[in-house]
Design a protein around this nucleic acid. Structure first.
Lengths: 221, 221
DNA sequence: CGTCGACTTGACACCTATCAAAGGCTGTGG
DNA sequence: CCACAGCCTTTGATAGGTGTCAAGTCGACG
């Protein structure tokens, strides 16, 4: 289940005996800030994380949402390129970079595994760029909801799916505004394609029509 | 200079004795199609390649342009996820996946190098998603021109920079239309920020103002 | 010189951003 | 338990940007 079950010694500075299955963090906990020395990889065990890039003029982009099984920390040089914090209470497996290099020398097959994981990250970034190139807001939002359903393993009708991110996060992820996101979600609800039973959730009602709106294969990973 | 100088035996099916520094291909040569069995990595030595994803409804996205030093073929599973062809005459170093696995077992440090390259690919996909999230067409186009200047090592005024892709490629890369790309390039020319001396080239005239346009919105009609 | 494709330019409609205000949920304090 | 404050979300009106359709220009090539 874990990427490096033995790679990180208990004596590591960021560990303590209590968090055996990984480090436990609360919602809003910051894993790292842009510019921090990029010295670790994080494997999400439970919960959802958010990676955000803030521009000088105050605009924001949510580069990615990380779900259990995702690795956070690829694609940075010496310093992290964006901020990362937890949207929900969560658990992460932290592995120092040095430990990874060492482990790879001892277990060469680990390199291939890591490369596969990095390839998965590249694939999901491809998916995001495909989403962002869609011209209409409805296509992007439909595609986004489908990717959430897929990643949570609930790609079926009448499943309650968690929506841990706020409208602003969705908007900044898709290059839209809060209002446009809200309007289109309402439209989907009025058409009977989804339900919005309360904050933080939605329910798929007509998967087929949602896929038709997204109008492409909704393959994530 | 090359990633795997010894990894691929001369007897490999896709090799012949004539292409010592890599395989030579002409413009419009197709490296692979979407759906092909993904059995190789390609390192661009010279020339420019284009990775395109075509949707059922005929719309197209140019996922990436690959310049010398870039690796093509990360981020696919068993089958390639998009098409890839050459925009110019080019040379590529082809390495079979099997050779890579084998080489990694023999030289563990190669795994780290590959991982670094994959990280670079992830970083450039992040850049693309940042571009695509910009709301205005001018910001995206300015950012795209700057990335071209950077990648060709000509990030300075009065340098002639090759623009091997057509307007449609740029448009499909940035989620815009041909007309919008054309109009904004013309606007940049009228403002004296770039020159368009002929097809397939542009010249940076005012790097500072182009960077200002890419970073934030300063629209003067 | 003529044809063809790529590019440019123009007119208009639609979609989305923007500005504004109201509604609803949540947590806190009385 | 209720009232209130604050934030998130929804909804409305408007304007501007970009897509769409259409025509015209430029350059390459036979």
């Amino acid at each position: 289940m874990y990427l490096f079950p033995h790679a990180a010694p208990e004596s590591h500075a960021e560990r303590n005996a209590a968090d055996a299955p990984g480090r436990v963090v609360g919602a809003t906990t910051v894993l790292f800030h842009e510019g921090d020395h990029a010295d670790a990889l994080y494997e999400v065990v439970t919960g959802v994380f958010r990676a955000t890039k803030v521009f000088q003029d105050g605009r924001r982009q949510v580069v990615a949402f990380a779900y259990p099984g995702d690795i956070i920390g690829f694609g940075h040089g010496d310093a992290y390129r964006f901020d990362c914090d937890a949207l929900t209470p969560a658990r992460v497996q932290v592995t120092a970079r040095g430990d990874i290099s060492q482990a790879m020398r001892q277990r060469p097959e680990l390199g291939e595994k890591l490369l596969t994981l990095a390839a998965g990250e590249i694939a999901s970034m491809h998916e995001l760029s495909l989403l962002l190139c869609r011209k209409s807001a409805m296509e992007r939002i439909a595609g986004f909801l489908l990717s959430l359903a897929t990643r949570t393993g609930k790609l079926a009708n009448d499943q309650r799916i968690s929506l841990p991110m706020c409208r602003a996060d969705i908007a900044d992820h898709l290059g839209l505004t809060i209002e446009t996101v809200s309007r289109n979600l309402t439209k989907l609800k009025l058409r009977g394609i989804i339900d919005l039973p309360g904050r933080g959730n939605f329910i798929l009602r007509d998967l087929g029509r949602l896929q038709a709106l997204a109008e492409c294969e909704a393959v994530v990973h």
